[in-house]
Design a protein around this nucleic acid. Sequence first.
DNA 1: CAAACGTGGGG
DNA 2: TCCCCAAGTTT
Length: 356
Amino acid sequence: MSAPSADLPTPDTFAHALLAWFDVHGRKDLPWQRNRNAYRVWLSEVMLQQTQVRTVIPYFERFVAALPTLAGLASTEQDRVLALWSGLGYYSRARNLQRAAQICVEQHDGDLPRDIEALSALPGIGRSTAAAILAQAFGERHAILDGNVRRVLARWHGVRGWPGGSAAQRLLWQFADTHTPHERVADYTQAIMDLGATLCARSRPQCARCPVASGCVARREGLTAVLPEAKPKRVAPTRATTLLIVRDAQGRVLLERRPPTGVWARLWSLPETDDAASAARRLRDHCTLRADSCTALGSFVHTFSHYHLEITPLLFDGIVKPARVGDDPDHGWYARAELAALGLPAPVRRLLESLP
DNA sequence: CAAACGTGGGG
DNA sequence: TCCCCAAGTTT
C-alpha cells in the first residue's frame, strides 16, 4: 500500500515531463556514460567545459585509453597529460586535472571526494562541475547550471538580461535547484542538457517537439529568439608575434617550453620573439641563428576567443648545434615523428606538419 | 566584476 | 568573411 498522495513530495511537472522525454530522446550512450565511474565522469565534465560534445569524444577516448585511472593520471608526467590534451584548448584544464588527481591521492585516499565542498575546492572543479560529477557518478541531488541549462531556464522562466550577470545567475541557480527532482537525478541532469543541446538550441529552437513548451514563458511571449540575451560584446584586439622555426641538418626542429602563465602555458612551442636579436641570445646555447639562412614564411592570423594573433613564421634551416649542449629541460630538438607525443598548441602543430 | 584562457563549428 | 559561442573556472 502506497502512502496517501498528500504525504508525497509534490512532483515537479517540469522534471517529470523532461524525464519522460529523456526516456525516448535522451542521449544514453556517450562514451562517459558507458562503464560509468567517478573518474570518467570527472574527466568528461572537465573536457566538456566550454567545449562541444562532438569535439570532446575522440579526446576522451584517447585520454581514458592512455590513463584509465585517477592514480595513473596522478603519477604520470605532466608532458604526457598535455600531449593528450593537445588540440583541445584551455590547457589549464589539463594541468588542474592532474593537480586535482594528485591532491586526491594525497588527501582523499586516492578517490574524488563525495562532499560537494571538498570536490569544488579541487583545481578545475567549480560549482557546476562538482554538482555534475556528484549527480552523474553518484546520483546525488545537486543542481547544475551550464550553458545548456542556462538557455533552457532563461527561456522557460523568461529571465531577462544577460544570463552571465550576477542577478540573473542567482535567479537561474535558484530555478535550477527548484526543478531538480529527488529521484533520477543523473537522468534529469542529462535530460535538461540534452534538451538544451538539441530542441532548445541557441538558434531555431524546435518548440513544437519540446516536452515543457506549455509552461515556457519565452514560447508564450514570443521571446525564444531574444532569450537568452547576448553577452555584451567587446572589441578583440590584434597582436602580432614571430615564431622561429629552427631546423638542424637532419631536419629536426628546436622547440621551447612556454612559460607557466599566459596562453599555451607549459606547452611545447616554437620560440616566440619580438626581435631576432633577443631570440638569438635566448637560444645561443642551442643554436646559432644566421640572418643569411632566414626565410620568411607566410604570415597568418590565429583567432583566439578574446583576441587575434598575427603569426609570422621565420624559418632558419641547416642550423648546426653547438658542441656543448646543456641539459636544458625547456628546450629540445624534435623530429617530425616525435611531435605526436608532445603537448603542442593546435596552430603550431599545424604549422610544423605543413612544413616542407 | 571583468579579463584571461583555445579551438572548431554553425549561421 | 565575420560573429557568436559551447557541459566554466580562475585570477
